[in-house]
Design a protein around this nucleic acid. Sequence first.
DNA 1: CCCGTCACG
DNA 2: ACGTACGTGACGGGA
Length: 843
Amino acid sequence: MSRKRIVLIDGSSMIKEAFYSLPADGANGVRNLLMTILEKKEADYLAIAFSSGVNSRPVVEQELKAQEERLKEMAVSLKATVLVKEGYESSDILASLAKKHSEEDSDITLITKDRRLLQTAAEHVTIQVPAMGEEGLFLKTYGTEDIQNEYGMKPKLLKEVFALLTAEGLGERTACKLIKQFESVSNLYEHLEEVESLRIKDILKTFEDKIRKEETSLILKEDCELCLDFTKSISEAEIQEIMDMDFVPAEFPDDENESSVSASFHVVTDLSEAEDIFSKCISADRLGLQLVIEDKAISALSLCFGETDSYCILPEGLLSRDYLAGKAEEICKKSGHVTVLDLKSQLPYLKLDAGSSVIDAGVAGYVLNPLKDSYTYKDLAEDYLNMTVPSKVDLIGKATTSRAMIDNRENGVSYVCYLSYVAYLCGERLIEALKREEMETLFHEIEMPLIYSLFSMETAGIQVERERLKEYGDRLKIRIKELEEKIYGETGETFNINSPKQLGEVLFDHMKIPGGKKTKTGYSTAADVLEKLSSDYPVVSLILDYRQLTKLNSTYADGLATYIGPDERIHGTFNQTITATGRISSTEPNLQNIPVRMELGREIRKVFVPKEGCIFVDADYSQIELRVLAHMSGDSRLINAYKQAEDIHAITASEVFHIPLNEVTTLQRRNAKAVNFGIVYGISSFGLSEGLSITRKEASEYIEKYFETYPGVKSFLDGLVTKAKESGYAVSMFGRRRPVPELKSSNFMQRSFGERVAMNSPIQGTAADIIKIAMIRVDQALKKQGLKSRIVLQVHDELLIEAYQDELEDVKELLTNEMIHAADLDVSLEVEANVGESWFDAK
DNA sequence: CCCGTCACG
DNA sequence: ACGTACGTGACGGGA
């Protein structure tokens, strides 16, 4: 008889791993693992262990705990045994069972995130640990040989290595070397004098207490007397049964009290019936409304003013599209509390302005949690109503609503009704949540009015000279061809230069150019790698040029051309609910990354021109993020630095290196600039050393000196991290929040990332708040003063206005004035403004 | 559909 | 030892 295959999963540690790598879905992550094992028939017996509440490590979040409970239920439904024992951690249970059953006729596999279990590897015991590989997360298997290969020792000794690793400054290789030499931590300390390296000896002395303490906590209890009941082995039939079950997350609601949809949905095509609904809407105290717009036309109006009914009004017969739009607008203007979803897309038909009291549920959802990737009615229903509803795709697939009304009217009506139904139910909840989180002002005073300003900017669009863009592209194409020939000549073969894979092979394999740095998939051919080689290998220079030209051609010359409309203008989309920090983003096309740094690319800006009779006025904040930092930190020296002179990077250099301002060298200024950037990004010596190509040691010296010079900045940044760790989110000056779940990660890299984010988000977020305020005020002032000039672009710290010639002076004054006074900081906001006949000239 | 690359602030 | 600077979007290549 063959050996029994027992698979034991460390539920407590695995759910935590899955929880952090697949946010909020730890339970499903581990369930999928169970399913895979069953599917592949890798186990005759499957059990999952959990730490008992009492003795487990501090429970980090409620959410994680809740997911653990969910997972237990799932495991039972999958016929896996759930193992819990008072006073034992999940890892103790696994260790005990492995020891007990490997002596019988069983092969044991332990799946765990807890590396301590590696010490239990033995002849019939292997351990699988989640690891990052080329294909993402996978399970790495460790048997005794694997451990011998990787660590060069017997599994039992690993405990000693892990204990040493708790000392800061001691790496895995060093720890292994020490244990191979001394065999145990206690023996090592007895023979400490035999350690050659002074540095290591020093570390070992400093951390002796910590290491010895850790050594004891690494001992796994192997005396847990749980028994596996093999009569409950999973049969073939049962596996089949489980596989046949249709598992969807919805079968495991995370809340027993989930709300359900109880409303009835109605379709209305009759005028008098519609009028009856409209009048009820106008007298309702709250309502959800949605004009469904597809292909620039209204395909339905969705209305909901009570929990019991939702209406889908279709443009048929006497109910013309214009009539529906007019009615929807009237309702929005007359009713007090209207909630819609994606207001900006409806503004072409709902002629509202920032004075309206309508709120956008999607934007509210974004303010409450900017990390989500969508804010559809389904998302909002899940997050704020605890309700699972079918998504748009579930109901009508990829069809349009009007198509669905013909092919599958019932689902089409459902979809339309859900829009206003969810908006109706969410409205109040969202406002309550915003109040609770102290973001109501941010929402009402900044985010809601911004919708109208963004709409205005999109509607205005920006004129682009089609012919000139084409000529530019043609010039590029000629030079690209020439470069291509030269490169093929130099390399002696034809290949696709735009393929990093092929390029890497040609350069580093065929031509044997040294210094091929690796990425996950092969050689890195990124610009910073190639630049280091370009002086020795002319062909590399050609390739860099080629890259630059093809980028300009595909993304900008050809790319932009496809977006020029019949009005000779590009009307891009400015998204308000994308970024984690509060910035806006730009798509189709991205008008926020038009080249400027390199001369050749900058030329493209010549094709962005004002229309006849107009001229561009461009204004951008100088150093807004550093000014925000100076203000928020309250560091008096940094604030004074801004008060006394213009060139902040030079002053920083002068103060940090203690040299007179007029003696600061170009290099010193450059270094100081990089440090300033680093501070804003959430400083790390590693990052700074990369940015400046200096050693990490030098980089940390710069940072140290910087913090000595500006101690207020240091305490401010430390405070940001501490507060974010306590509260779970970073906050801007105007109360904008960004959750930073990474701060709780047990993974060093992720946690460090969280710390940088906690330092950067309040700064970037505050700058974003400020320009949003400026933008709203400029837009509203233009309109209020009856000026025809309009904002056409926003590029994070820059506003571009297409100004009518006769309004030029007013516009210049208004624009700079509103930008400068958008926020009252301890350092003044400075704005650089320029006028020009193209975006190129106005910069 | 993901990755590497590169354009911007 | 870990192997990153913060925030975005578009493109081409290659599974």
